[in-house]
Design a protein around this nucleic acid. Structure first.
Lengths: 240, 240
DNA sequence: CGTCATATTGACTTTAGTCAATAGAAGTGG
DNA sequence: CCACTTCTATTGACTAAAGTCAATATGACG
């Protein structure tokens, strides 16, 4: 219970970037009923096409939003980490246009749609905060689109590593500019829209350039933050 | 005035895909104060980085959401057509992470943020409908991400043409499966994340395969809808 | 120790980008 | 209407980026 409380605090801190919340609103969030499920790598949390009746809050681990195409391709649309509401949009859309998959072992709190809707009705500021979260989500997606379309594989790789550094640091998970994604280069490949072999080459290039250091399971240490940002053309404003 | 009313009806019809609206809510939307501006191709409607105080409703023409990167690249993140709220997210985010640009002559109604906020406060169902619209927007963005990452240039081209056919048809702008984008292959290139020369080659391939027919300014006629959908791996569910 | 997944490397292919030239179209001013 | 400019589309030749395939290495784990 303690750990969940901590994560919900992170969520609250994140939501408060947009709207200050009253104590009552915070308490309502903290005490909202939810169920916690555990997943291991490759587990499907929500399948593409499902019509979920709960919203997923990531407590621990890394979750990928994955889309399977008619041609067999798999595209990872984003990474969700502790404190992220992974599928808030499922409140509004009829069916999931993509799935949620555990890329590393993950603990997920599931809050019934009905609960979220009640919260939004009773506390308009919470509703605004959730809307802000969806909008932020859109901004991250757009940055990824820009990466896929108009950044080289090298820049794109550096860019996502920068983004994850900032996001993980914001929830205290990248002490000393180090973090471990517990996932594979294949996952990165599906996120970048390139091949796993090419991801490998780009990671090596980043190492060769003295920007990062990494061990298996994508445990990495940023050696030169400014250098990595420069290589990526990283401008953090979109993360708000 | 007549034309605006028609477009607002389209917007209402679109919003009602998610939430049925009362007559009062519809009237509130219809009578919301707004200013109409006209733009010609290449005009900047909202610049990247701006902090707009109004929401843009496209009445006529085609608007692109464009993002300029540090490396000089330009990525088009989406096309907005009549009846689309082009920057609803600006209600929530601090600064625009991208700009809005007229890709063809466009008429835009601008509704003050304050007005939209009032509408949302007074009519919770309108608030839900707007949230749904933002969520739908996210779904379209995700489909584009999948196209950029895991579809070939040929499939991607076919896919966007399918999407535009469905969206334009929904607002009565693709009679007889024909529509004219009034933009250039360069714009498509920036939307797809490929070069203009390659867009040209893909369009020619689609013509060669008997799927489309096209004239200058991207006036096109879909000759074989099913063939185009098959080529694209198009599954329209994401459009709602 | 053996098995499986992942990472790394090299050789080769494919896709897409770049550059440059040409051809069409559309708009402008006289 | 014409001459002129400019933008856009098309084409071909060549280059560069990324993909594919296959072999090998490394590492985690039962």
């Amino acid at each position: 219970m303690k750990k969940e409380a901590t994560v919900i605090e992170r969520l609250i801190r994140k939501l408060e970037h947009h709207e200050l919340l009253s104590d009552e609103e915070k308490r309502a969030l903290e005490t909202a009923p939810s169920r916690v499920d555990n997943y291991k790598r490759h587990d499907v949390i929500i399948a593409q096409g499902d019509r979920p009746s709960e919203v997923c809050l990531v407590l621990e681990g890394v979750v990928g939003r994955t889309k399977i195409l008619a041609n067999g391709g798999r595209q990872i649309l984003g990474f969700e980490i502790a404190g992220d509401l992974a599928d808030l949009h499922s409140l509004f859309l009829k069916g999931m246009d993509h799935g949620l998959e555990a890329l590393a072992s993950a603990r997920i709190a599931k809050v019934p749609h009905k609960t979220v809707r009640n919260l939004m009705e009773r506390y308009p500021r919470l509703a605004l905060a959730f809307a802000w979260d969806m909008a932020l989500d859109g901004a991250i997606q757009r940055e990824w689109m820009a990466s896929m379309g108009r950044r080289s594989a090298y820049e794109q790789t550096a860019h996502v590593l920068c983004e994850l550094l900032i996001r993980l640091r914001a929830v205290g998970l990248a002490p000393d500019n180090q973090y471990d994604l517990h996932m594979t280069q294949e996952d990165l490949a599906d996120a970048f829209g390139i091949s796993a072999v090419h991801v490998n080459r780009m990671l090596q290039a980043l190492r060769r350039d003295g920007l990062i250091e990494l061990k298996a399971s994508l445990a990495l240490k940023i050696l030169d933050i400014q250098g990595l940002k420069d290589a990526a053309g990283f401008e953090p404003a979109y993360l708000q």
